[in-house]
Design a protein around this nucleic acid. Structure first.
Lengths: 148, 148
DNA sequence: TGGGTAAGTTCTGTTTCGGAACCTGTCAAT
DNA sequence: ATTGACAGGTTCCGAAACAGAACTTACCCA
């Protein structure tokens, strides 16, 4: 199967990964969350090649995750910002960060972690079912194939 | 920057993606969560090439996400199962599924969604800070760079 | 002797990537 | 008028990764 056939799959994991399941894309989204909006800043911070960054930003814009907005007219320059769809990726990023901090130790400090902004205590992300308040675990969930 | 230099980065997003930030890896993990344990089953279901699947399973085993366990002796055959580190990826998968179902519509039914096993109602995943019970959003979180 | 099963490995041609250089439009200083 | 800086790309090349198909190994069964 080729990658560009994936976005129509029934499985939401496949559809999600058709947008962000790439070696660099989620790192670009991270930069957006950190307030980095310009091409050269992203390129310098990520160490990605300019060619690949241009391609990823093009795809993210086409997928509606970021949009381009002019910040000066001459010469015309755009910056990249997250759309609501892009901001909705925040829980994915947070759970990934939590997993990596727990299970993929880097061999050099400094490390980066998340704090509750109000209390300044370390964030302890927990996934619950908003309907019932129950923890979501592998065992508390079942899969539904709907449609025909 | 090359991909194999990424796992030592300070940023947990980079370290996490060095393990699962690949076009196929999280799909393989999904199969494991669905109880698919054997090479040929995964290959047939995913439509991935055998070469790439063998490589991804090798990497996932090396990274401690899955382990191989013999299920018959002659000829020796192994199946792949999630380690605790692998099972800890469940929240990442659930938030990704939730995002994709909300924002990446497939153009063909059937679609797949998650249910609370006990109530059989649709799952509404919500990420909260276990310390305070507050919702986790982009605005309620701040970033800490620790170490030196 | 031949076929079936399971888990890979090997081969070949295509696509993508990394790294560096180059291009475009504009302004400001020399 | 020319030079340099800035910002956001594009182009080029060789290297790496990928898709698809065939092949290999080891065993069992008929």
């Amino acid at each position: 199967m080729k990658w560009n056939e994936l976005h129509t799959e029934a499985c939401p994991v496949a559809r999600g990964l058709s947008v962000i399941g790439d070696r660099w894309t989620l790192m670009v989204v991270r930069e957006c969350f950190l307030g980095i909006r310009r091409f050269d800043d992203m390129q310098a911070r990520l160490g990605i090649t300019r060619h690949v960054l241009a391609d990823r930003l093009r795809n993210l814009e086409a997928d509606g995750v970021v949009y381009r907005e002019a910040y000066q007219a001459r010469p015309l320059r755009h910056e990249y910002r997250l759309t609501p769809k892009g901001r909705a990726l925040y829980p994915v990023l947070v759970t990934l960060i939590d997993w990596a901090n727990a299970h993929v130790p880097g061999d050099k400090d400094p490390s980066i972690s998340l704090l509750n902004r109000r209390t300044q205590n370390p964030l302890v992300p927990k996934l619950i079912d908003a309907e019932t308040g129950e923890d979501i675990t592998h065992r508390s969930v079942t899969v539904l194939k709907s449609g025909q």
